[in-house]
Design a protein around this nucleic acid. Structure first.
Length: 116
DNA sequence: CGTCTGACGCACG
DNA sequence: GCGTGCGCCAGAC
């Protein structure tokens, strides 16, 4: 059914937002992990694209807790200020060096554990 | 309707 | 171990 497909598309954004908002304080996750948890393991690029739209979303979404698979802050240029992403992370106790999260492996939060 | 783009990820050399 | 290239899906033009 067409409506169902349309609903699915809408849920793509919804799920990305929902998962992102569930990221625990002081934890981080990856675009790929989010994509996988919403059923589209290869749609990691879409996750970043969806997060870019969070700027226009009134709801607060901690997009700064989402980085790429190696823990690098590749999306910092999309924040109001390039340093904002790092500042937000560090304010939560996440150390960042050279745009890279320190001890990323230990701070990684797996979205699939949340049973969306 | 073809083509390009993107806050990624992976295979390959 | 690093650089390059390609696939991925959805939207813009």
């Amino acid at each position: 059914m067409k409506n169902l497909q349309k609903l699915h598309k809408e849920n793509f954004f919804e799920r990305v937002y929902t998962i992102t908002k569930k990221i625990p304080h002081g934890k981080v996750t990856t675009y790929g992990a989010i994509a996988k948890s919403i059923g589209s393991a290869n749609a990691s690029r879409m996750v970043g694209w969806a997060l870019n739209n969070t700027s226009f979303n009134e709801t607060y979404i901690p997009a700064h807790r989402v980085v790429n698979r190696i823990g690098m802050l590749t999306g910092k240029h999309h924040f109001r200020h390039e340093t904002l992403m790092q500042e937000l992370l560090e304010s939560e106790g996440v150390k960042v060096t050279n745009d890279k999260i320190v001890d990323f492996k230990n701070l990684f939060w797996d979205p699939s554990k949340e049973l969306i």
